[in-house]
């Protein structure tokens, strides 16, 4: 179970990086980056998973006294919650810059932006 989730995450990261490397259109690169970002999140969450345990919420199913033996690791979940929000911020920023770039050159083709190329 953990390995399936982790494999999915790794495959998504690979797809995302491949897409970002081969596509020339900036919007497609942004989509590829979000796919890779999702893959990283899935891998991080799956690291905290443990077989036969439940979510880290201390309700009727998880008495406080037995909590340490009944719940999965809450730390990766907290981390991923942060990572998702920051990922969304980064995506919004990339889209805004893409808009400005299109405004300047009238094109979203990355090969037309050679200012920093040596």
């Amino acid at each position: 179970m953990v390995h399936i989730a982790m494999l999915t995450g790794f495959v998504l990261i690979a797809i995302g990086i491949y897409g970002a490397l081969t596509n020339r259109n900036i919007l497609r690169m942004i989509v590829a980056f979000t796919v890779a970002n999702t893959g990283v999140n899935i891998v991080l969450v799956s690291v905290g998973y443990m077989m036969g345990r439940t979510a880290p919420i201390l309700d009727a199913a998880v008495p406080v006294a037995e909590a340490a033996n009944r719940i999965i690791d809450p730390v990766p979940q907290a981390l991923v919650l942060t990572a998702i929000v920051i990922g969304l911020g980064v995506t919004a920023l990339m889209l805004a810059y893409a808009y400005r770039l299109y405004d300047c050159r009238g094109s979203l083709d990355i090969s037309r932006f050679r200012d920093l190329k040596w």
Partner: peptide, 9 residues
């Protein structure tokens, strides 16, 4: 807090 993730965050 019941939700440990919330307590951490």
């Amino acid at each position: 807090a019941q939700n440990i993730v919330t307590a951490i965050i």
